[in-house]
Simulated scan of single mutants.
Amino acid sequence: MSRRALPYRIPSEDVVQVDPWDLITDDGHIPMPEALPDWDYQMDLHLRRTVRIDQDRARSQTGLPPEAVLMLAVVWTATGSNLSGPAQHVRLTGSGSAAVSLDVRLRGSDLGGLLLVDTALLLAEHRSEGRPSSPRRAGSVLWSDRSALRLQGDAPQFPMAVIDFGRTSFPDGAAWHLQISGNLESATMGSLLLLVNERNTAVATAFENAGKPRDIDRIVLSAVYADTARTMIEHALSLDEFVDGAEFPAESLGETLTALFDQLFPGRSISDMRLRRHQSPSLFASEMQEAVKIFEVSR
């Protein structure tokens, strides 16, 4: 736990003991890793840990009376979606040692990028009386802990939705469509949307099984990845402001497209690939296939 200079007393570090987060899967549970390279927005996350709190010492060391109500809270933040929210909270009104089981479920559609999971011991209710050095405001942080999980692997990640193309302007028989909107400084999460046609059962099923894909699902997902990467690169090369050395805001569409270009074509210049696409589109298409490693199901 990092120590911060606060205008009130906080308990010693050993007042709260925490187990590492576990990632709960269909096959059981594993310690939460540093990264999930195969994660996608269809994959919800289930996390679990136990926190042990010496309530008596937590109150006495902060100058709080025995009846002061404490709270253990979990809050999540996802850098890729720029979203955050409460995950769980447990009120503590007893005495002695308390073992609290935290069980957190997060929707994959809300996540992306780096997932930060903060666990904190708080003062649950405002106190109008007490020692000058003791916490008084509801929500005062007495202890905190942060864990991080990187969710984005090599593939570009952005929101997706499964819809019936028959009710849209898209061709009924198309399998997917990538929407790109906004300028290069727009937030990535608001600029990209992958739409999957529910009428195409092979593609819709592949995304349903993305957490544990079969070989056929991996082939389908490889094709979708290759096509979306091609669409994104061609969109980038069509924009005059997408040039070598350009800088874009963090989490912006420009930053995402630049990162994808550098990943697919390391050592190549944007001007060179723009010229290749203009002069020899068929060769450019073949180089894209090589860059995305299409149909290499071991990705």
Rank of each mutant, 00 (worst) to 15 (best):
R3T: 03
P11N: 13
L23R: 00
I24M: 13
T25V: 12
T25G: 02
P31W: 01
M32P: 00
E34S: 10
Y41L: 12
H46T: 00
T50E: 13
D54A: 05
D54T: 07
R57C: 05
R59I: 05
Q61H: 12
G63N: 15
V69L: 06
M71E: 09
L72P: 13
A78F: 02
N82H: 12
N82Y: 03
S84M: 06
A87T: 15
H89S: 13
R91L: 05
R91C: 12
V100P: 06
R107A: 14
G108H: 03
S109F: 11
T119N: 13
A120L: 03
A120H: 08
G130A: 00
G130F: 05
G130Q: 01
R136M: 10
R137L: 10
A138Y: 15
G139H: 10
L149H: 01
L151Y: 01
P156G: 14
P159I: 09
M160L: 08
A161S: 09
I163Y: 08
G166E: 01
G173K: 14
A174I: 03
H177W: 12
S181M: 08
G182V: 03
M189W: 00
M189E: 03
G190V: 12
L194Q: 02
T205L: 00
N209D: 07
I216W: 02
R218T: 08
I219R: 06
V220G: 01
Y225M: 06
M232R: 01
M232A: 02
D240P: 09
A246E: 06
P249S: 11
L253I: 08
G254T: 00
L260V: 09
L264Q: 11
F265L: 04
R268H: 15
D272E: 15
D272M: 15
M273Y: 00
Q279R: 15
S280I: 13
A285H: 09
S286K: 04
Q289F: 02
F295E: 04
